[in-house]
Amino acid sequence: MTLVPINLTVNGERHAVAVEARKLLSDVLREDLHLTGTHVGCEHGACGACTVLLDGQAVRSCLLFAIQLDRSEITTVEGLAGGDGTLNRFQAAMQECHGLQCGFCTPGVVVSMTAYLADHDQPDDEDLRVALSGNLCRCTGYQGIVNAARLSSRGAAVAGGRPGSGPTA
């Protein structure tokens, strides 16, 4: 087994690590850099739990070899909240709208939507649901996540209702 030294900047911090060529970025982040917020749910690109930002773009970390990324900038879910733990706009909306239950898909959802909402002004419901289609969630039925995306992008969740609720509220 040959280890190759690489440099990765993750969440603004530079790391020098030695990796086997075949080691997936998801595994290097989790095992070598102890950033276990990046979750692994399928390792074939389908579930989205492992999504990270590579040079600002949301990508699957299970479909990248860390060795490809020497001198790249990566942001993981751990890098999104403020240094004092203040949640970013979408994270805060997720809490307000109950966009997570078990929390396993959540890092991928948060990374993906933080990037998506930064790039898209005023997406409509259809846009939001399509944007979310690359992140599978087995718990929430997506209602809370969609509401969080609405709240975070439009400042209001659902016409005539509060986030997370149906016609009750």
């Binding site: 879910v77 751990e78 949640l87 809490q95 929390g103 890092p107």
Partner: peptide
């Protein structure tokens, strides 16, 4: 939520 949303579960 805060720990799960920030990758610290």
């Amino acid at each position: 939520d805060p720990r799960l949303l920030t990758g610290h579960g």
